[in-house]
Design a protein around this nucleic acid. Sequence first.
DNA 1: AATAAAACTGACCATCTGGTCAAAAAATAG
DNA 2: CTATTTTTTGACCAGATGGTCAGTTTTATT
Lengths: 211, 211
Amino acid sequence: MDTQFQKKSKPRKRNEASILSAAEDVFAELGFAGATTSLIARRAGIPKANLHYYFPTKQALYRAIINNIFTIWLQAAETFDDCDDPGEALSRYIRAKMDIARKHPLGSKIWAQEIMQGAPQIQDFLETTLKGWTLSRVKIIKRWIAEGKIASVDPAYLLYMIWATTQHYADFAHQINTLNGGQALSDKQYEEVTSNAVTIILRGIGVQVQE
Amino acid sequence: MDTQFQKKSKPRKRNEASILSAAEDVFAELGFAGATTSLIARRAGIPKANLHYYFPTKQALYRAIINNIFTIWLQAAETFDDCDDPGEALSRYIRAKMDIARKHPLGSKIWAQEIMQGAPQIQDFLETTLKGWTLSRVKIIKRWIAEGKIASVDPAYLLYMIWATTQHYADFAHQINTLNGGQALSDKQYEEVTSNAVTIILRGIGVQVQE
DNA sequence: AATAAAACTGACCATCTGGTCAAAAAATAG
DNA sequence: CTATTTTTTGACCAGATGGTCAGTTTTATT
């Protein structure tokens, strides 16, 4: 029987889920090189040999997690649509990115560490999907500039700024929490921080924004 | 004789320098947990036992590097002075940070990984020096707002945005280079990117900026 | 209940880890 | 040049690492 269409068994589903979750934790905390399969197994509550039954190598496990991160990345990417109103399109995109930073901080950290290490696992993604997406958005932003809808700024640099700001709230959450009296940002604070980012960036590129 | 005032011998100076340089490389690339003393020693061109003669433990070596990063951080911090003109003060600070991001990308990456891992080595610095510095700058920014010199934004969130944008160019240099046709940003591009950041942020908080 | 397939795991392995040490070599001081 | 201090290093250690495997237990199917 073709295993491709075989339903995943109950224990497989349960264990793969808890391994992936533990691995996300550990990879975010220690990076690929620093993470150990025995620590991941311990956090997942299973023996190491069992982990290797589901994911034969540390690399395979890491790649599975990288795949999840891509999926999330693509979801946010889709919110940047070719809209007539740059203010609406950009504010929707920034908000989507801020949302992801809050909901998936571990993925963001793993991504950051991958890039810092020279993207050994995701270089092809950068060169194909990310590059393609960026070029198409650069075109849209250029059109907005040509139509006089936003100030003349280099589109790529604008995107970098959006990425920087939004990912910062995931990657540097610990630093922000420390400055916030040791507390994570509340829902209200996070909404403020999001509005703040949207406002500064939009006003920064000359888009009127109602407060 | 008091060794504290003893001049460092020639070999000591030479070796400590090359070890620190190699260690900065490796820690930035692999994080504290992932870095190995034998790899650092190999890159420094000395046997591992010799490395441990100068830095008894991996921690001691790491702390020495963290100390260097603090020094650099403080240098940038000083450029944010209590100036009458927010535009001038902020643009000077942003430029200083961008400069550091370019000149010391490894330090920035090590800092980023420290924070992502929950700041095991620098928590006290965050709670004392960084917190104190931030509070004092928040006061200055609040005064600017009260005087109507800049728009009403949360000062802390403004600082986060500045940190995010400037550090991004160090931490995510590889991603940016990939999107830049595999080339590092040229001097000219880096100047553009810096001006772009200054412009968007200043305009974003309602400061006129001449282009 | 019988069978086949999937899941589990203790014990094991070669290699690498941070770190030590004693003895040799090089640098420095008198 | 001699004596002393500093530096260098191969060999070594106990523990951890990623990964394997054979045999047992659990689950699913009939």
